[in-house]
Structure formats: C-alpha cells, structure tokens
Design a binder for these strands. Sequence first.
DNA 1: AAATTTAAATAAAACCTATTGACAAAGACT
DNA 2: AGTCTTTGTCAATAGGTTTTATTTAAATTT
Lengths: 359, 359
Amino acid sequence: MVTLPQQEKSLHKVNGSFHTTTLKDVAKLAGVSTKTVSRVVNNQGEIRKETRERVQAAIEQLGYRPNVLARSLIHQRTNTLGVVTWGIDYFGPSRTVVGIEQQAHQLEYSLFLNLMDRPDDGDSVSLLDTLIAHRVDGILWAVPEVGNNRAWLESSQLEHFPPIVFLNTEPRPGLVVVAVDNFSGAKLATQHLINQGRRKIGIITGPLTWWEARERYDGWKSVMHQAKLETPSSLVVEGEWAADAGERGLQQLLAQEPDIDALFASSDQIALGALSTAHRLGRQIPRDLAIVGFDNIPESACFWPPLTTVYQQLIDVGRIAVQTLHRMIEANRQSRVLNEASVTLVRPELIVRASSMEA
Amino acid sequence: MVTLPQQEKSLHKVNGSFHTTTLKDVAKLAGVSTKTVSRVVNNQGEIRKETRERVQAAIEQLGYRPNVLARSLIHQRTNTLGVVTWGIDYFGPSRTVVGIEQQAHQLEYSLFLNLMDRPDDGDSVSLLDTLIAHRVDGILWAVPEVGNNRAWLESSQLEHFPPIVFLNTEPRPGLVVVAVDNFSGAKLATQHLINQGRRKIGIITGPLTWWEARERYDGWKSVMHQAKLETPSSLVVEGEWAADAGERGLQQLLAQEPDIDALFASSDQIALGALSTAHRLGRQIPRDLAIVGFDNIPESACFWPPLTTVYQQLIDVGRIAVQTLHRMIEANRQSRVLNEASVTLVRPELIVRASSMEA
DNA sequence: AAATTTAAATAAAACCTATTGACAAAGACT
DNA sequence: AGTCTTTGTCAATAGGTTTTATTTAAATTT
C-alpha cells in the first residue's frame, strides 16, 4: 500500500471549467519530477519499486490518462486509421467494417469513421481532407466503385496523402487494392446451375454503373460462353440491389423468356424478390426455376426455400486491407519508398442450399 | 492570379522521411508571418485581399492542412466523439450508427468507432480508456444492454469522463438515455393482432438477458392482460435474435399450444424463421397463423407473405443522441454544471402488411 | 504637402501536453 | 573514495493559437 497526501476534490476545477489531469499534476501529487512519471508511464529506465508505486497510485487517484494528441504530435504518428465507406446499413459494407475494426483493434489502431451519403461521388474530397487534417497514419477507402467516384484520384496531390488501401474497387495501376473476386464468384454460381442441368439461365444484375455488378455480369457471360450457351439480352435484366428489383426483374425475364429454368440473382435481396414473385406466380422453386444469389446474408438460409448463394468473406477483405495498410505504414516509416501497387483478390465460395437443387 | 516563387519539389522530403507542411512552411513561401497565415486559415481579423490570396495560393501549392492535433491541444477540444457499439453487421445497430454519423457530420464532429467483440461486458473499460486518451468531447454508448454489461459505471470515476449519452439502454437515475420505446412497440404489435380477432397469441422473445427483449416481452404481456387474455408460459418461447430461433421456436410453440392463431416475433429474423417453419408444416399465413415481427428490416417487405412489423426509427435515435450530446458538451463548456439526467423515448410505428391480415 | 488617423502586418513570447537527450545531483553500496 | 543506481533539471521539440507591443503601410484630414 502506498499513501498519498489527500487531494482536494476541486483539483479538476479551474475557473469553473473542466481540467483534465496532466503529467504535471501526477508529478506534483506523487512528489516526483515529470520525467519520472513519464518513465513510469512508458515503462522505460530503471525505477525503484517504491517510486513506481507512488506514481501509479497518483495516476489511479487522479484518473490520469496520457494525452494521445500531445504524443502523436511528437511521434509524428497517430496510431489512427481513417475509414471512408458507404452503406453500412447494408450487409456487405458493414461486414467489411467489422473486419477492419477487428484487425485495427488488434494492431492497436483507432479508427475514424466517415460515411458518404451517396456512393457516387459527393463529398469525397472534404472527407479525405478531414482525415488528413487529423493526420491519420493511413486510409481505407471502402466505398463501392460507382460511376467515376474515384475521380478525386486524378485531381488530388497524392504525394501529400498517407498510404491508402482500396477495398472492393477495380484494380488500377499504382494502387493497392483488396477485393472480393466477384468475377470468380459469378462463375461459381453460373457453373453450378449448368452442372444441375440448367440451360436457360437468366440474370438480374445490379446497377451496371457499379464495378461489382459488372464483374458479376461478366462472370455469368464468361461461363455461359464457355458452355456454348447463348446470352441474348432477353436473358438479362439490369436492376437495383434491393428486393423489389428481384420482383420486377423476374417478371420481366419471364415475359421475355417464358421458359428460363434458372436465375442468377446478383444479390440475395434480388433473389428474395424473385422468390416472392415466383411464389405469387405459382412457380415451384427449384423444380421450375433454380435460383442462386450473391452475398450470403444471414437470412438467406431461412428463405423459402433456403437460398443457394455465393459467400463473400468480407471480414477477410477488411482484415487483409488493414494488414496491408499496416505494412505500408511501417515501410514508409523506414524509408520514403513509394509503396508498390498490389492487388489481393479474396475468393468467394458457393453455399449450396435447396433453391438450386432438387431434393 | 497570384504568382509565387518556384518551390523545389524536395521541400517535403527531409532526411528521406516524409514531412507534412506546416504553418511555417506556408508563411515562408507566402513571405508573411505565421500569424497572418493563421488569420487567413481561421478567417479572423482584417486582411488585405492581396495578402489573403498570396497565402491561399501558398496553401494550395503546398497542400497544407492545419494539424488538428495541435489545434485540439490548445483549444482543449477535439471536435471528436467516441462511439462504442456492437453488432454493426446487424440491421439495428448499423442504422443507429448511420444516424449518429449523419448528425455528427452535420455538427462537424469526427467519430472514433469502437466495436465490442461481444455485447456482454468484455473490454468496455479499455475501450473507454482509449477514447478518453484521445480526449473525445463526448461518448455515445450504443451497446445493447445485456446482463450487467454496464457494470463499469459503478467502478469508474465518472468525474474524469466526458459527457456520455446511452443509446437503447435502460434508463437509470443520473444517466442520459435515448432509446426506442420497445414496450410501446410490442404493445402496438400485440394490440394489432387482437384487433384482427386473434386470441391465442404466442410470443418468441429475444434472449431475456437483453433489456430490449424484456421490454418487448412485457409489452406483449401488458396488452394481453388488458384484453383479459391468458399468458401461460406455454405461449412463450425464449429465443435468440436470429432466424433459426424462429424456426425452432414456432415448432415448440405449436407443440405446446397447437391452436395458437397468432405469433409476435421479437425480431424480423425470428419472424422469417417462423415463416419458414410454417411453410414446411403447410400452415397458411395469415389464415391459420398471423405473424408480426419487429425491426422492419428492408427484406421484410418481400418475405412471403410480406411481414407486418414494428418500425423502429433507429436513425432518429442516433441523431437525437448526438444532438443531446452536443448540447451537453456546449453546456459543459460554459459552466461545469452537472448535466441533468434525461430520457428520450422514440416511438416506433406499426407497418401493416399481409402476414397479419387476411385479404 | 504635412499631419493625423486607421488599418494591416510583424516579431516575440507564452501556452497546450508530453517526449527526449544531455547532464547533474543525490543516495546507496562496496 | 569510488561506483552504481535512481532521480532531477533544463531546454528543445511537435504544430499550431493567442496576446502584447510595435512597425509599416494606407487612408483621411487639415
């Protein structure tokens, strides 16, 4: 036990305004120099056990926590990453953020979170500015690529930017990208349907301004061609990501090609909408129509029938992105070498359920 | 147009290591004092148009952004809020975060995001410590209340904490809380079923260690009693929040009370699982069994049949929480008056769809 | 044109909090 | 007395803000 002089309660009141305790306060209370406190806090140098305990008791009593701002200022490092993303109320983006947070936490980074209001451009530049003003050590750009919403890349002076990793965006020369291999995923889905003996396989795409939607579309086309199956535009409907696109989409497809026997839906929500339409029209799933989705949202296992879908390991995308960013930051610290571009693709896997296989 | 002396590219390279541009650099390049630059940046005092332009040109050229850390240090204010939450890959929590972010952005706060790995206790204290070390101006505690996961409240020295607002937790004396009125929501749902002429109304609850689950359970009980309906334990199944709890839950309910004519599911996922079981058992929804969920996840409109559910305006909870916190911060700045406790309840509304009404 | 007033800019120092290095001093131990 | 261990002093640093006192420049008045 260590005893300390009683501290009057008013210590943290100065001029009636809040005063967080500083190194000095601790030093004064413990009766040592600030240097000594600093040594205790940072666990460096030889310190007598008794002194250490006195200091620690003072820290306890005052609720002292070192001011990270001051530290960062000196060390030229904030241990902070900036995340820019969109749509965390959707399953995919939120999972990605979870992965990011987990890995960041493990590597002792704090996260600044910034959400865009719309995925297509908007206020990207001002968000990035804020992050840079906060001197984040690195940036995770996790906004889905829509239209030309990375136009800021051209106009910005990237030499004033910290390292950036792009998540789920199209690889480009000079950039570091971690993404799900949507193309492969779509191929898995389509190939599976072909393996089930289906031949007339329709697709409802996401909005084709989205890179991910285009990749999935291309994957479908690629497998179809390989299997020598036609891909007329009557088998294709462009939709939004949400469920009602699936409802309308299937209606339209059936109007154009009444005898399609399978559907590749570019999201689980679209698949859900299609299921709903199928029920209304009295089509048996999977007998009359096999359906495969994309995402593996938790609900999809309980759709009726349970949905076959492509599982994207978005948590991994987040984790890998942070690991990569961390390496870039460390490398930068050693030498101001330009980080090499790189592309990491995470392979999705197919989850087979009842919506695509007859019992 | 303003012209400036050419700057050699190597300015931001010092000893081969990265050098962010500072006020001084700008001042030197513009040929003015640092004070002048400061005035331009902060838009204060009288400054000749020509000078302002020179300075702005220098800022542009160097890509200067004021160091927020240094500013915060002086102003004793970081314009930063800490968010602690859990489960942003679920619909409810992520929506709440969206609301928080929107309002924070509008009030020019940046957000630190911290996710707990588990909602029941865990590392709360260390998360809070990190936030305080970062000198956040306020904290949003958006972790659902499970068991005694706010035990840290007793052991912490709250006088060293910045203002805190609690989201979707049980009101307690002395705390500021913004929450959805789960009790009312459950009453809406149950009353609606009674209005439809249902009398034997079962419930699948969330885990009753959760405050929100208990509130919904109590709401159901309250309305049942008011309508002079029995609430034997055979009408109650405690579940998890996810869909498979609904599958098993309905099975169990039907085993206990084969002639129930309605079900209040404490989450849309549970409702989805119940729908799935109903299909498998050949029960017609809503004819044989009316179902109401809770949450209004986007998919619920496309369930088969579309799900009647209770819509919680979680975005509003987030927004209001930030507004409240902002007021507390401002009030604190004026005078170190203890912030008064307060409770704001957000009323949910009932969305009626086909799962509870015969056509 | 000279004198006065007003405006714009500057230099220098203090401050915010913590870190760091060089060096000195005190105390403990042979 | 000499050595080792522990602690302290002091100043500089990180990147800004703010104050005071001063200087310079421009605008206005006589």
